[in-house]
Amino acid sequence: MGRVWSLFHKFASPKWFYEISGKLLPWFVAMTGLVLCTGVVWGLAYAPPDYQQGNAFRIMYIHVPASILAESSYMMMALAGAVGLIWKIKLADLALKTAAPLGASLTFLSIATGAIWGKPIWGTWWVWDARLTSMLVLLFLFVGVIALRSAMENKEAAGKACAILALVGLVNIPIIKMSVEWWFTLHQPSSFKLTEKPAMPPEMWIPLLIMVVGYYSAFATAWMMRIRVEILEQENRTQWVRDRVRTA
């Protein structure tokens, strides 16, 4: 247990994390590029067209992973907030800080690509559908966390306040989703029905799986790049950062 604990604290030390992430980063960049390129080429050029939607379904390969990542990035953000509050780890606060804008951008992507996909398929950019509406609320939750941080001058207090807000949001997300789904089933518009699609053949869902992996990897890469700068900002008075600045 003692060993695990010391490992935990070592991992949470900004300097150690900066060094190890610096070594990992090139690998992550390479992997992200490779996986995303494979997924995009396969999805755009080689996957067979959908028998109902034709080629418009190819938007799925960028839309579905964005939606998955948007939700998991909120979870990661709230989790980082909890870790920061409980164990008072500075790195966790930075993790929350960097996850928020990335998560917001993925939520935006999910909504934007969903709207573009909706136009040829449903005939309209926007539908007040349960999933779209929950995504919109998720975007608002991300915006709230970002707005709270930018409004508070004291950095340490801002980190804790954002952690609390993120956790409150996390508790609310299942309630919001449930209520939105209930609202949708009772207001169900007659013209648009998102019925279950028939099972996809493997040559359609394998590229999707690749894209999901690629998005996760891209998120990890972007998150690492950002948190490294945040670490430098936070530790700018320490000797190791000063040395780095001098030799850079």
Binding site: F140, V143, G144, A147, N172, I175, I176, S179, V180, W182
Partner: peptide
């Protein structure tokens, strides 16, 4: 308002 209004969604719907 920005922080709280999204959290009011379930109450409003119900």
């Amino acid at each position: 308002s920005v922080l709280i209004l999204p959290l009011y969604v379930p109450v409003l719907i119900l």
